[in-house]
C-alpha cells in the first residue's frame, strides 16, 4: 500500500489527479468552514457579479454561488462514492459468479447485463428515478445500477483469464472448496483492473448525477448540486454568465482529476503496461 502511493506520487498524471481529487474531497468534507455564506440564504443582491462581497457572485435568488458550489461538491463526492460503490460491489459479485461458474449462470447474468447495456445510461437512470421518485437516495441507486454492467464485464473477463491459469487448476486439484478458491485465489488476482475501473467510474457517476440534477431528477431545490446549479443558470445565462461558468468549470476539473487519477492507478496496477523486470 505504501509502495503503491509512492509510485502514484512518482507518476506525473497520478500526482495531478490525486491533488485534484483530494482538493474536491477536502472542500466537500469541510464545506461549512470553507463556505462564506449559507448556500440557501437569499440575499437582497440578485445576480451580483463576482467581487469582494460574493466571491463568485450571486444567482437570481441572491444566493452566493461560491458557497453553493462548495456545498455542491458534497453532493458530487457523496453521489460519486456511494453510486460507484453500489455498481462496484454489485458488478464484482455478478462478475465473479458469471466468470467462475460459467454455463447457465454466466448466460443468465450476461444476457441481463446486455439488456442493461443496451439502454443509454442516462435514459436508464431516468427510468429508474421515474419509477422510484426523484430524490437523492433514489438517484444514487439509479446511478449505481447503471454502473453494474461495466463492472460485471470487467470482472468477468478478468476472472476468465485468471481461471485459465494453472494455479487455479492446481488449487482445485488440492481439494479447495469453491468459496475459498474465489476469495483467496481468484479475487486477489482480479483486484487490479477492478480498482482501476472503480477510479474511472467515479467521474462517470459524478457526471451522471450532474446530468440528472440538470434534468431536475436529482437533488431537489433549493439544495445545491453542480448539475442543478447549471440547470438553474439557464434562464439568466446572458445576464449572469458566472452562474453557468462556475459549476461548469467545477464539473470539468473534478472529472479531469478523477480520470487522471484513474490513469495513474492503471499505470501502476496494470502489469501489461509495466516494464519487464
Amino acid at each position: 500500500m505504501k509502495q503503491f502511493f509512492a509510485e502514484l506520487l512518482r507518476d506525473k498524471t497520478g500526482r495531478v489527479g490525486l491533488a485534484g481529487v483530494l482538493a474536491v474531497v477536502v472542500v466537500a468534507v469541510f464545506a461549512p468552514l470553507i463556505a462564506t455564506h449559507d448556500p440557501l440564504e437569499m440575499s437582497d443582491f440578485l445576480r451580483q457579479a463576482p467581487g469582494a462581497g460574493f466571491l463568485l457572485g450571486t444567482d437570481e435568488f441572491g444566493r452566493d454561488v461560491f458557497s453553493r458550489l462548495v456545498y455542491g461538491a458534497r453532493v458530487s463526492v457523496y453521489v460519486g462514492l456511494v453510486a460507484t460503490g453500489i455498481g462496484a460491489i454489485g458488478g464484482l459479485a455478478l462478475g465473479l459468479a458469471a466468470g467462475y461458474y460459467g454455463g447457465v449462470v454466466d448466460n443468465v447474468i450476461m444476457r441481463l447485463m446486455d439488456v442493461l447495456f443496451a439502454f443509454p445510461s442516462i435514459l436508464l437512470a431516468l427510468a429508474i428515478v421515474a419509477v422510484l421518485g426523484p430524490d437523492l437516495g433514489n438517484t444514487i441507486i439509479a446511478i449505481g445500477i447503471v454502473r453494474i454492467p461495466v463492472f460485471t464485464r470487467t470482472v468477468r473477463a478478468e476472472v476468465l483469464s485468471v481461471k485459465a491459469q494453472e494455479y487455479i487448476t492446481s488449487v482445485r486439484s488440492i481439494g479447495v472448496k469453491d468459496g475459498r478458491v474465489i476469495l483467496r485465489h481468484v479475487l486477489p488476482n482480479v483486484m487490479a483492473p477492478f480498482i482501476v475501473q472503480t477510479t474511472l467510474s467515479l467521474s462517470s457517476a459524478i457526471l451522471v448525477e450532474a446530468s440528472l440534477s440538470f434534468l431536475g431528477l436529482g437533488i431537489q431545490p433549493p439544495n445545491p448540486s453542480w448539475g442543478s446549479m447549471l440547470s438553474e443558470s439557464r434562464r439568466i445565462m446572458e445576464l449572469a454568465p458566472w452562474t453557468a461558468i462556475a459549476p461548469t468549470v467545477a464539473i470539468i476539473l473534478a472529472i479531469l482529476s478523477f480520470n487522471l487519477l484513474g490513469d495513474g492507478v492503471r499505470d501502476i496496477l496494470d502489469p501489461k503496461l509495466k516494464n519487464v523486470e
Binding site: 487448476t169 492446481s170 486439484s173
Partner: peptide
C-alpha cells in the same frame, strides 16, 4: 467424499510460472 479423496492424489504442473498463485 471427492474432496477428501483429493488428499491422496496430487498434481504437479508443467509451467512453474503459472501454477503458483503470484499473490501468495
Amino acid at each position: 467424499g471427492l474432496r477428501t479423496a483429493r488428499r491422496d492424489m496430487q498434481m504437479v504442473f508443467q509451467n512453474p510460472f503459472g501454477s503458483l498463485n503470484p499473490r501468495m
